[in-house]
Write a protein that binds this DNA or RNA. Structure first.
Length: 203
DNA sequence: CGTTCGATGCACT
DNA sequence: GTGCATCGAACGT
């Protein structure tokens, strides 16, 4: 299990080092796990895309708290986004987990994805798309707002180092936001099928 | 290939 | 009332 000290570091280091680590979620319905292949850093009140940009509010309070906990919020009324809180208490920063390569619990993931209101009765989801995108991965894993502020170092929601080979990391601009997109604060595994957005071209 | 748009909830102004 | 750290279907070129 990654210790609190892992998260108590500069957010960009955490964002890069989370690639290749394994997100684990244990629910009554079963266990689901996946290797993290895409992350984004949101760093402090000076980052206009960070939820802390306007100062502390009820919603973003977890960002200001201790590292090594989850920050989960609802976006577009439909999608729960999961972040790992980083840096010291009082430094509002986090890493958004944007995509996983599914490892364990694929049938459970597929069942959950199929329950999305806009997807009922549609074609089944290919394995590598089950956890592609931040909204998709929380739905597949079963992570919800109820997991906000949960410890990532013990309990049902954890991130483990399973010793997988360190992947080749690509840094580029964050996606889905309208400000500060030029900051290269999105980390992804080069060429991985489960990374959201357009594939990164290679020479 | 591209753009548009509906689904859906809530924090914040 | 406005605006999202989204998703994917439907349509146009």
């Amino acid at each position: 299990m990654l210790p609190v000290a892992f998260y108590l570091r500069p957010t960009l280091e955490v964002a890069g080092d989370l690639l290749g680590k394994v997100l684990v979620y244990r629910s009554p319905a079963g266990v689901a796990t996946g290797m993290i292949v895409e992350t984004e850093a949101y760093i402090g009140e000076d980052d206009p895309a960070c939820h802390a940009a306007m100062g502390r509010t009820a919603r973003n309070a977890p960002l200001y708290g201790l590292p090594g906990r989850a920050y989960v919020y609802l976006n577009y009324g439909l999608h729960d986004m999961v972040n790992a809180v980083t840096e010291a208490e009082g430094h509002p920063s986090a890493v958004l987990i944007r995509a996983l390569e599914p490892i364990e619990g694929l049938p459970l993931m597929r069942r959950r994805r199929g329950q999305a209101p806009w997807r009922k009765g549609k074609a089944t989801v290919p394995d590598h798309e089950l956890c592609r995108g931040p909204g998709n991965l929380t739905r597949a894993m079963g992570i919800t707002l109820a997991d906000n502020e949960r410890l990532l170092t013990s309990g049902p929601l954890t991130i483990r180092d399973e010793g997988l080979r360190a992947p080749l990391v690509v840094w580029d601009g964050r996606v889905g936001i309208s400000v500060a997109t030029e900051r290269p604060w999105r980390a992804s595994v080069a060429g991985h099928r489960s990374v959201s957005g357009r594939p990164v071209r290679n020479g």
